[in-house]
Amino acid sequence: MQTIQVTVPFKEGLHARPATELVKVCMTIKSDITLIKDDSHVNPKSILGIMSLGASHGTALTVQVEGADEVEAIEKLKSFFAG
């Protein structure tokens, strides 16, 4: 399993366009992905899951990836959250 800590770089928060783009990135990944904010664990392959976090600009999130392409996946997610 690969884990990274990120903060939301988008000024409008993690919804709308950034949320849509995150779903698209995650759909290219085969591994299981979990996005964690405090006690909430969601699957970022679902737009509702992402939006349910209500993650505003600067919110700290944990991303966990587990599966065959986890190393490559974590790089994609790092680059997504680099903004």
Binding site: G13, H15, S52
Partner: peptide, 16 residues
């Protein structure tokens, strides 16, 4: 603040 982010988050949570 982020009123509409909160509305969206709450609604999304229920809609799942």
């Amino acid at each position: 603040g982020d009123v509409h982010l909160k509305i969206l988050a709450n609604l999304s949570r229920r809609l799942m």
